[in-house]
Nucleic acid binder design. Structure first.
Length: 213
DNA sequence: GACCAGGCACATC
DNA sequence: GATGTGCATGGT
């Protein structure tokens, strides 16, 4: 029996409308944002990206050459700035050295192999890798995050101990393989997660309340 | 002043 | 393989 995820999507889209994710002006900006947003509020990531732009650093070559401490200062508002500076350097080094900072070379790879390459970069975990695949490159790879896990468990569609890959597969098997759909769905899950599906949840007014078990 | 945010690597058991 | 911990800013 297929999960009612298409219905969840319809409900969320009807309630919130299109989310226009990812808010980035270029694939590279999305890649950078994917690292900066780890465990951080997006409003803080925006400040860090503004800094990078102000110093003309939002460029693969520039970041590749830049020393880590300076990069850390620039991205400070995003939090965890020293680890993120190292992670950004790692990701950019992979992008520049291995792929000539060429987005088209990434798109030319088999998506599963590209995902494996990304996961080999220290500082890139499954969510960051999938965010890059989906939001930077338009490759249909469903993004799972804490909100996804929370919504699914609260609705009895997954167990508390369900891991990242299982949740990802649940979505990908229940939905047509469509990057635009994955894009919008994940953004909508974040929207409903932020507003309602929190530790102190208020399910009475949630747009998904009719689907609660 | 807590609590939380669009995670991940690493240590330890 | 599971579980715990460090990383850090800024808004509510």
């Amino acid at each position: 029996m297929p999960l009612p995820l298409r219905d969840y999507f319809k409900d969320l889209l009807a309630h919130y409308g299109p989310q226009h994710w990812w808010p980035g002006e270029s694939p590279f900006e999305v890649m950078v944002g994917a690292v900066l947003t780890q465990g951080a509020a997006w409003s803080n990531v925006e400040k860090a990206i503004r800094n990078l732009k102000a110093y003309d650093l939002l460029d693969p070559g520039r970041i590749h050459e830049l020393d880590e401490d300076t990069l850390a200062l620039a991205i400070k508002p995003a939090g965890y700035f020293r680890v993120k500076a190292r992670r950004l350097k790692n990701l950019v080094a992979w992008f520049v050295v291995r792929h000539g900072a060429d987005v088209e070379k990434l798109r030319a790879l088999r998506p599963d192999l590209l995902r494996e390459e990304l996961l080999e970069v220290k500082g890139v975990g499954p969510e960051t890798a999938d965010s890059i695949l989906l939001y930077a490159l338009g490759i249909p790879s469903f993004v799972v995050d804490t909100y996804t896990h929370r919504v699914m468990t609260r609705h009895g569609l997954a167990g508390e101990d369900t891991g990242y890959d299982d949740l990802k597969e649940t979505f990908e098997r229940a939905l047509p393989r469509d990057a635009a759909l994955y894009n919008e769905f994940h953004a909508l899950i974040v929207a409903v997660g932020k507003e309602f599906c929190r530790p102190t949840a208020r399910c009475e007014t949630c747009p998904l309340r009719a689907r609660l078990p």
